[in-house]
Design a protein around this nucleic acid. Structure first.
Lengths: 239, 239
DNA sequence: CGTCGTGTTGACATCTCTCAACGTACGTGG
DNA sequence: CCACGTACGTTGAGAGATGTCAACACGACG
């Protein structure tokens, strides 16, 4: 639902009725993808951007030796290739993880917004700055955190973002990832991710089974991850 | 010089005379910092953004166990905390590496630009998208590249960006970093960085001595790094 | 009923880290 | 001018975290 985006923005700043209407009217249609489909290919020229309505998406880069690095996970409410509006193509790939529905927003519409809606433009710009802040935490994870802290931090991030999107029931959330996905996101092997998940489970911190994460000891999880949600800028300010 | 920013933007899109004049008039003053000084502290409220005129700056996050992760390096022409305009504070720190001069642009001026200069706004937004693309490459490096490839990729990135900024003489550039800085950027120890630099030197690929990088075999360096400059979006397009 | 994708576990390998020692350059104070 | 401390770089030896390889379990699905 596009209402997920409105909620996400409204949490960070006031949105007036006119701005809500402009956003509601932005999509020119929707599109569906099955699981594990390419959505945007590296280098492909783009003329529209996608707002994720349902399902999970990831960005990734493949290396020459077959290794893959996932760069970010996206959930409903995320404007998944808004960058493409100004970059004109992406230097990485985007793929569905689960079955996915997106709303298509033509770049001409985005251009119109940037010409006529300065406040809305700032809010859209802002959402891309949050993506960059998430990237920075992943740099820290992959660079300096231990394997168990990387997994824990990713789970804390997803927990917090899914809660903002209204997709968490408080202590558990649906997460259609494989252990290999988590490995490619955290720069580990799926075998080692499996071991770290077992440690977290054995220690009563969290479980990840059948596509569902259940957090059984949130303070312990945040402590292992050294998680501080400040980087998600969840408070409202005039922007 | 603010002309570095104009060049950086003009390489990605046309800038008209009026827009150049607006940018030239944006700074309300300049400020200098000695080497290794804090420039912006995590969480500090911001009311102006800084355009780097001279010297090198880094963003970083410190972890509880004393480890540090550098998130990005900045060079003259970079609008180093433009994000602060919309984020209102940063979740990481910024520090000078060398002596530094910055131009100060009040957020009120940036707000005026976003209200009245849609094209210039898109270009400023664009520069923050480049930062995010750089972040993504660092995620890949720290997550999936070997130690030698991480060092090589960082050097390729700096070489390319410094060339765009007019701060490279073609095969060598001034780089006032310590091996510990490179270690904190690449998620390695300074001892291992030292070993990797020795390998690159012994193999005739590049040297880093006395604050100067000299690339002696560029194809070999790019090959080790698997470096593709596409992520820096160096071509001009209407944006 | 076989195959494939995914998860699980153990044994061993290896890359990078840790610890330690030492060299050099430079500034500072006696 | 010399003595000393500090920052940075260099090298070696051993340790440890994570990767690699291999085997097997299980369910989904054609």
């Amino acid at each position: 639902m596009i209402v997920n985006l409105l909620n996400k923005l409204a949490r960070r700043d006031m949105l007036d009725e006119h701005e809500r209407a402009v956003l509601m009217a932005a999509p020119a249609g929707t599109k569906q993808f099955g699981p594990r489909r390419n959505i945007v290919r590296q280098g492909e020229p783009l003329t529209q951007s996608m707002l994720l309505l349902d399902g999970f998406v990831c960005r990734y880069i493949d290396l020459a030796d077959g290794k893959r690095q996932i760069l970010e996970f996206h959930m409903p409410g995320d404007f998944i290739d808004l960058q493409g509006f100004l970059l004109k193509s992406l230097e990485h790939n985007m793929a569905s993880v689960s079955p996915v529905t997106v709303a298509l927003v033509p770049h001409t519409t985005l251009r119109h917004i940037t010409e006529n809606e300065p406040h809305l433009t700032r809010l859209l710009w802002f959402t891309t700055l949050i993506d960059a802040a998430i990237h920075r935490q992943w740099i820290v994870s992959n660079g300096r955190r231990s394997a168990i802290a990387r997994v824990a931090h990713l789970m804390c991030e997803l927990d917090t973002r899914l809660d903002v999107a209204g997709l968490s029931d408080g202590n558990s959330f649906f997460l259609p990832f494989t252990q290999a996905d988590i490995a490619d996101a955290t720069g580990l092997t799926s075998i080692h991710v499996n071991r770290m998940l077992r440690v977290l489970r054995d220690d009563g911190v969290m479980t990840f089974r059948d596509g569902r994460v259940t957090i059984t000891n949130r303070p312990a999880l945040a402590d292992i991850a050294e998680f501080d949600p400040a980087y998600l800028y969840l408070h409202s300010e005039p922007r």
